[in-house]
Structure formats: C-alpha cells, structure tokens
Nucleic acid binder design. Sequence first.
DNA 1: CGGCCATTTCAGAAATTTCTGAAAATCATG
DNA 2: CATGATTTTCAGAAATTTCTGAAATGGCCG
Lengths: 185, 185
Amino acid sequence: MADMTLTSLQKEFLLHFGEMGSRWGINRTVGQIYALLFLSEAPLNAETITEALGISRSNTSMGLKELQSWNLVLLRHQQGDRRDYFTTPDDLWEIVRTLVAERRKREIDPTLTKLRELEMMGKTGDPYAEARIAELREMIEMMTQFHDEMNRLETERLVQLMTMGRTLGGLLDKAPRLNPFRKAK
Amino acid sequence: MADMTLTSLQKEFLLHFGEMGSRWGINRTVGQIYALLFLSEAPLNAETITEALGISRSNTSMGLKELQSWNLVLLRHQQGDRRDYFTTPDDLWEIVRTLVAERRKREIDPTLTKLRELEMMGKTGDPYAEARIAELREMIEMMTQFHDEMNRLETERLVQLMTMGRTLGGLLDKAPRLNPFRKAK
DNA sequence: CGGCCATTTCAGAAATTTCTGAAAATCATG
DNA sequence: CATGATTTTCAGAAATTTCTGAAATGGCCG
C-alpha cells in the first residue's frame, strides 16, 4: 500500500467531514472516506482507505458503495493491478452539480411526486390543506425548473452569474417579463 | 381540544413528511409535527398535536423545541388561554428562505470556518491538499455570497428571476463582466 | 404563599443505524 | 476449470438516536 501516514492537515479535515457527515445525510465513515479521496491526488484502493481510517474492510466496501450511489467517486484502474482505485473529480463545480442533483433526487423529487398524488385525491373536505398542498407543489416546481436552467449553463456562465453581486437586481430590469406570477401574500 | 380527527389527506401528507424527515436532517416526529402545523389553518397547541400524532407529550415538547430552533414555527397566543399555540408562516417563500438560511448555518458555515482554520496551519508538506482546501473554500465563499445576493432580492424579483427560463443565459450577455474568474479545469 | 395548569427536563427503554468478522460471491488468469 | 486475489453480503454486536413516563420547573391567580 502507499504509505498511509496522514498529515495533520488531512487528519483534521477528515475528522471534520466525519462529524459533518450526519448533518449532510451520510454517516461518519462515508464522510471520512470522501474527505480522504478528496485530498488525495492519486486514486486510492479500498485496502489503503481501510488502513488510513482504521475501520474494517467491509465498512470501507459499504462506504464506497454508498459514495458510488451518490455518483461522488470515480472508479479508476491501474495497469497490471486488478484492484479498484477511487478518486473524486478534479473539477469542484462538477462535484457541486452532482451533489445538488443527488440531493434533489432524494430530498425533493419524492415529495413532488407525493404532492401530485395527493392532489389527485380530489375533494377531501379540507379546502385549506388542499390549497396549501397545491401552493407547495407550484413552488417546488418553480424551484426545480430554475435549477434545471442553472444546470444548463456552462460553468463559465454560472460563475459569471454568481459573481455578479449587486448587479443582479439591476439586471432584472433589462429582462423581458415572462410568466407574470402572482405576488406572494 | 379541537376535534383532532385527521382527514385522509392530512394523514398521508403527514406520514410522507415523517418518512422524509430523516433525509432532511430532522426526525420523523419533527417532520410530522411540522406537516400537521403546515396544513392547519388555525394554530395548534401541544396537547392537540400530541393527540393527533399519537405520541407522548414530552416528545411533542422536544419536537416543537427543535422546530423553534430552526425558526420554522411561529408562537401564537389566544385570548384567555395560557397555552402556547404554534403555526407555520403563511408565505411559502418566507419558509424557504428560513430553511435555506438554517441549513446553510448548520451544513455550510461550520465547514467554511474549519477550512479557513486549516489554511492558517501554514506549510504542511502536502501542497496538493492545501490547494484543494483553498479551492474548496473559495468556491463555498462564492456560493454563499451568491446566496446573500439572492436573499437580498424581494420575493417578487426572486420569482421574476426564477421564471425567466431560457432567457437566463441570454441575459448574461447584457451584464457587465465583473470579477473575471478562472475557468474550471 | 399555595395551588394549579402548562411546559421542560432527563434517565432509562425502545428503535434505528452503523460497524464488524466471517462466509460467500466474483472474476481474471494460468 | 481450479486458484487465488479482491470485493460484497449479511447476521449479529455496538453505537447512536429517538421516545417515554415521571419528576422538576415556571409562572399566574387568588
């Protein structure tokens, strides 16, 4: 295995990601595996990760599986070595796009589906709840459509948009108004 | 207590929020309490919530405390009744703003602080990790600044921006370019 | 002050999630 | 198709989180 003495920088970063893991909807181990890969220039194999983090080999396997299900790691192979090596994308913007897409898939889309389903139920004798649900569905649709738009922009454009600062408000004056939308109460 | 027979619409919505709770970083009970308040036109007191959800009074108390720490519920009082009554804001945009702000506070800000702290460590003998950490910090700063900007817009403007659709890309051509930023590799 | 109603706290019980070691599956290669 | 290296699965153990009932706290009113 590559020498797996971690620098104090790596150690601290990795412990932080571990602690934050629970807040981000992944567990400590998964957070730490990700952090380790993120800071490693070269791809790492499961055995190296296991040693570096002092966890069981099976736990590493499950953690990597979880990261793969999030599309957060890339699988690489080395010439003449059958083991799997993992990395994270170099491009941070790609990472963020993936993260947002996956979170949307897990945290938003199922709710959108459920809301549409509830609206299909028809009259329920609770007009207030029906209205609230419809309103919520509309808002989520608007936000996911906006996300789709942002996602369509190339990275350079996205950065341009994000660094616009105060101009954002003024810019809207120049935009044609489409889809006039009722003002929120 | 107000009659707490739930309609089937309420029941389904509430169960869904309960299930999603874990994905959203709150627990089932907290999700259900929020869902119930969200669909109720009138504010509810703890006893009513307890009965409606079939949980213990103390669990309700803890759940409400959690929701208050997220600023997701409003406390109301009724004339001649000493009990606390809770609701959610009518304005969904306000709810989303709060949600995003709180998530940022819990999920992003501590990491930003930690990254800055790690950068203070100075030379660590791991230039790649140092560079990666700096790059991550820069990106998070850019995104949080963008969030601050969006947050500064009034709701009407925000809706206008979000409903712009395809025009978004074209609009950028009209914007003055500030802060040219290196293209991602 | 004392009684009463409402809410919070908290220690332990219950439920859920995470982790491990051992066994099973996979799969390239001789 | 047998071998050995690698990865995955999975049942139970360990750790963590959530929930409860009982006791403590808080505060209003007479």
